[in-house]
């Protein structure tokens, strides 16, 4: 004969607790949906992430120019930051704005983010080139990124203002 431990009856308070957690879950989801829907909200968060990425790239480029960062580390940092910008850009691209105002916001954000990506291309080319020929210099990259940062800041201020 096998001595089987009997299956214990289901715990009594478990059902109300489950119901409570479902309620919490729903409430949380509701907050999430309200917080993130809306074109301006998504644009604002994409702009914020991208401006953090551009700031990172500028910091890395400055350190590179000051001889504090190796080329490998600078290149990796730029790639990571560019990926962040790309993520933001594709989020904004996927938005489907309903009002004219939202369409304007989306268009402006895309313009700024495209400028960012272009600036990253310059910076990346400067870092991978070995300071010869017609390749852009690190300083060119930094200038391009600074312009992109200004554009993002303006956009961010406007998004914050509305």
């Amino acid at each position: 004969m096998v001595l089987n431990t009997p299956a214990s009856p289901p715990l009594r308070g478990s059902r109300p607790r489950r119901r409570l957690s479902v309620t919490v879950l729903c409430a949380g989801l509701a907050v999430l949906v309200v917080g993130c829907s809306g074109v301006s909200g998504s644009v604002a968060s994409a702009v914020k992430d991208s401006s953090s990425a551009v700031a990172t790239a500028r910091l890395a480029l400055r350190q590179d120019m000051e001889g504090k960062l190796t080329r490998a580390a600078t290149a990796t940092t730029l790639d990571d930051a560019l990926r962040e910008v790309d993520t933001g850009r594709s989020t904004v691209q996927k938005l489907s704005p309903a009002t004219r105002e939202d369409r304007d916001t989306q268009r402006q954000a895309l313009e700024a983010l495209d400028a960012c990506a272009a600036a990253f291309a310059t910076a990346r080319a400067a870092v991978s080139a070995d300071d010869v020929g017609s390749a852009p210099t690190t300083a060119d990259g930094d200038r391009a990124l600074a312009a992109a940062q200004d554009a993002l800041n303006q956009l961010g201020d406007k998004a914050g203002g509305t």
């Binding site: 990425a53 960062l69 190796t70």
Partner: peptide
């Protein structure tokens, strides 16, 4: 205004303070 999202950002402050040797 940098919010860390990658490991490359974690090490930037060390390079800032201690240069290539720190890196």
């Amino acid at each position: 205004g940098i919010a860390v999202t990658s490991l490359s950002q974690v090490i930037l402050p060390v390079a800032e303070g201690a240069g290539k040797l720190g890196l």
